Amino acid sequence: MRELLRTNDPTVIAFSTALLRAEDIDCFVLDVHMSVLEGSIGLLPRRVMVAEPDLFRARAILRDNDVGEYLSE
C-alpha cells in the first residue's frame, strides 16, 4: 500500500474515497481512530492508502476532480 493523500479535512477524505471506489480502486483510510488520543480536535491528519498498481490512476482521478492539492509526494 502507498500513501495517496493526507489531510485533516473529513470532507476531502469522504469525497476522495467515493471517487476511488466508483472507479473500482480499493482504498483504505488510516488514522481514523486517532481522535481518541488527540481529544477529537482534528489535529492529526488521516491518510488514504491505495495499492501500488493503482497509484498512478488514483492520482489522476483525484487531480481531475480538484483534489490534487492534497496528494502526497
Rank of each mutant, 00 (worst) to 15 (best):
F56G: 15
G39E: 02
L71H: 10
A60T: 12
L44R: 08
I25E: 02
M1T: 09
V32T: 09
Y70G: 14
V50G: 03
A14F: 05
G42W: 02
R21W: 06
D9Y: 02
A51F: 13
E23N: 06
R6C: 03
D54A: 11
L43F: 00
L62S: 11
S35Q: 12
D26M: 06
V12P: 01
I61S: 06
V29D: 05
V36N: 13
C27K: 02
L4Y: 03
E3G: 13
E73I: 12
D26V: 13
N65R: 08
G39C: 03
H33L: 06
F15S: 15
R6G: 02
L30P: 14
L30M: 15
E69Y: 06
R6P: 04
D26E: 10
A18R: 09
R57N: 12
D9R: 08
D66E: 15
A60D: 09
R63I: 04
S35A: 13
L37V: 04
D26F: 13
I13P: 02
L19M: 11
P53Q: 02
V32D: 10
L37H: 00
D54E: 10
L55Y: 14
D54T: 09
L71W: 06
E73F: 05
L37W: 01
L62F: 01
L20I: 02
M49I: 07
V32P: 01
A60N: 13
E23F: 08
I13E: 03
E69K: 06
F56W: 15
G42H: 03
S35D: 08
V12C: 07
L20R: 00
S72N: 10
S40K: 15
D26L: 14
V32K: 05
S40R: 14
E52M: 07
P53N: 04
G68H: 00
I61Y: 04
F15Q: 15
R21P: 08
I61N: 00
M1N: 04
A58V: 03
I25C: 13
S72C: 07
T17Q: 14
V67F: 03
L37E: 04
I41A: 15
A58N: 07
A58P: 15
L44M: 09
F56M: 15
V32E: 09
L19C: 09
I13N: 09
R57E: 10
P53V: 01
R6N: 02
S72P: 05
R46A: 08
R59V: 08
S40Y: 15
R46D: 12
R46W: 05
L44I: 11
D66I: 05
D64K: 07
P53W: 04
T7P: 05
D31M: 07
H33Y: 07
R46L: 06
E23V: 07
E38T: 13
G68R: 03
R46C: 11
S40H: 13
D24H: 13
A58F: 04
R2Y: 09
N8A: 08
L44A: 07
E3S: 15
A14S: 12
D24R: 10
D66P: 03
I61T: 01
I41L: 12
N65Q: 11
P10Q: 02
F28D: 14
M49F: 09
V50N: 10
L37N: 04
S16C: 11
V50L: 03
S35K: 05
R46Q: 13
E69R: 11
F56E: 15
R46T: 11
D66N: 12
H33A: 11
D9I: 00
D24Y: 08
L30H: 14
P45E: 01
T11K: 06
I61G: 03
S16T: 14
I41Y: 12
N65S: 01
